[in-house]
Amino acid sequence: MTGIETFLVEFLKLTFLSMVPFVLAGQGTMLGGRTGVFNVAQEGIMLTGASVGFLVGYTSGSVFVGSIAAMLVGGLFGLILAYFTTTLKMDQFVVGLALFFVGTGLSTLLPKLVLGITLTPPLIPTLKNIPVPLLSEIPVLGPILFNQNILVYISVLLSILLWYLLFKTNLGLRLRSVGENPKAADSLGISVNRYRYLTTIIGGMLIGLAGAYLPMVYTGTFTELMTKGRGWIVIALTFFGGWSPLIILLGSIFFAGIEVLSYRMQVGGSVIPFQFLNMLPYIGTIIIMIFTFGKSRVPAFLGQNYDRERRTL
């Protein structure tokens, strides 16, 4: 293989590796949004997920147990968001921002409580690649697609599964109706609150897992603010993806691609200052937003609470 080919294969392999947090958090956000709950606490939930995932993984010695813990704590954030917005009917954006701050603070506090202050942070083993038999032998495509860690496969399968559930099944029909017109759904005996709780909690779990992916794959340890704004980018991603699982998957590949590119260029000793390269994902976000915002279809009741007895004037 020539140099450029090696570079491309390596680039695409890393892109698929890096898309996972975007996919998981994106689908989690999409799921809540589809019933009308607009989560803006991704950054905080991801950080807490990263922190808890790492700590539990370290103390238990199992990355799997760490992931489960990250999901549980993410789900807890989802539960709190659902309780404050659907039961107490508080403003979704305000509650979401509050949860972001709680999550960010918690993520740095927890390691200090559990590990104390250490100069050399402990490490957990990172996820191993699992080559798919036969498929990973295919030239070029094999190493890019079929020699990845388990969560890469899971995030692709999850996206397809969610698409099928939302758009092809009776469950999906009901679920989406809650975000499109909760009053109509309610009048047909669909429990608006139940669907909102369910999707917000599962969404929180996915976002928590997205956070845990960072120490489990990239660094082997938790560092402060290690999400680097990925949570915020995910919000743009869901709008770009039209709140649709498959387009969110594509969007995740795009954002991951920009992210890998900016790292590659820094490592490659580019003449462009690294501060500028760090900006790339955000510039990409702004460009995407300019072209898609307002055009992509949003669930009609996104971000709005529903109160059955509120009379419209």
């Binding site: 009776n170 029909l173 499109e180 017109n181 109509a184 759904a185 005996g189 009609a300």
Partner: peptide, 18 residues
């Protein structure tokens, strides 16, 4: 009380078991 971007069929069966 209808879902604007659903078909007539989907609006009618919404909430029933199929």
């Amino acid at each position: 009380l209808q879902i604007n971007n659903y078909t007539v069929l989907d609006n009618i069966i919404l909430g029933t078991s199929v």
